[in-house]
Amino acid sequence: MTSPLRRGLPWLAGTALVAVLAVALAPFIGQTPLSLARVFSFSVPFAENIDAQIFFLARLPRSLAAALVGGTLAAAGVVFQGLLRNPLATPYTLGISAGASFGAMAAITFGALLPLGVPMGGVAGASLAGALLAVLVVYALASARHSGLSTTVLLLAGVTMNSFFSALILFVQYLSDFTETFRALRWLMGDLDVAGYQPILGALPLIVIALIGFAWLARPLNVLSLGADAAATRGVDVTRAQRVAFFSGSLATGAAVSVGGPIGFVGIIVPHLVRLVVGADHRLVLPASFFFGAAFLVICDVLSRTVMAPLELPVGIITALIGGPFFLWMLIRKRTL
């Protein structure tokens, strides 16, 4: 009897390879054609090598940001689906993105009132703070009357947070002028125009911590699909597993959103497709979703830069255009929800 885990390993390696290729090749696609020889030509000084500058300063950071955000959102989607025992959950189900959006919105609108304007990374920081606020409220509600976390209350609290923060966002928008509203709207669409490595380096430590949590979670999440009580009788510390899942998933989502805005559907399309191929074992689904999510968002970003060139669409529009119909297809074909 061969181990189901071992049978999935070639697929896992495959997704990793696709991710690396996507990140490396994406920077060569775009408005200005780049020559491989010129990008890596060391005879020309970097200051005069336009190809190298475009590659290393504009397109590579963007490609890396897409990979990091896509991979993180996809893996966080897996964690929330496991936590809520629902394959239709997304990283945004529990209101984290709405909180993050409210934070970003407030920074864009009220930051102008500060004496020095919005500081470097201010919008990203404010979106993280907003995400944290949403996470704490949802956690407090879900753990208030339970020894562990009630997944039912988590879901209801998440839905409530989503609509509450949406109301706050509309309120802040009402108070802002046209320029601010435009910037805010662009942020909400989800955009990977990161302009340098700084946003990636800022989010990376948070994402690494979250991914360590994910690695520990893989086995408990498998057993949790039997239900909380049954998992406890298998020896899982259910309360601890739920807490780690909730906080590491939220940390990953908050960090990813602070870089690229609330890019939708990656966290549900990718895990679903990955499960069709590697099965349900979280030890395969988590890493494979990370790699495939990375490749997926890099490719979506290339599409967003090229389909209407020279116009650059926000990548969130591309993922939503793919994701909406996909989600409907999933609803229809799924045997059990």
Partner: peptide, 13 residues
């Protein structure tokens, strides 16, 4: 070991 009444699984193992 416990065999619960509800034998539903959330994912396709």
């Amino acid at each position: 070991a416990v065999v619960p009444q509800d034998t539903h699984l959330a994912f396709d193992y």
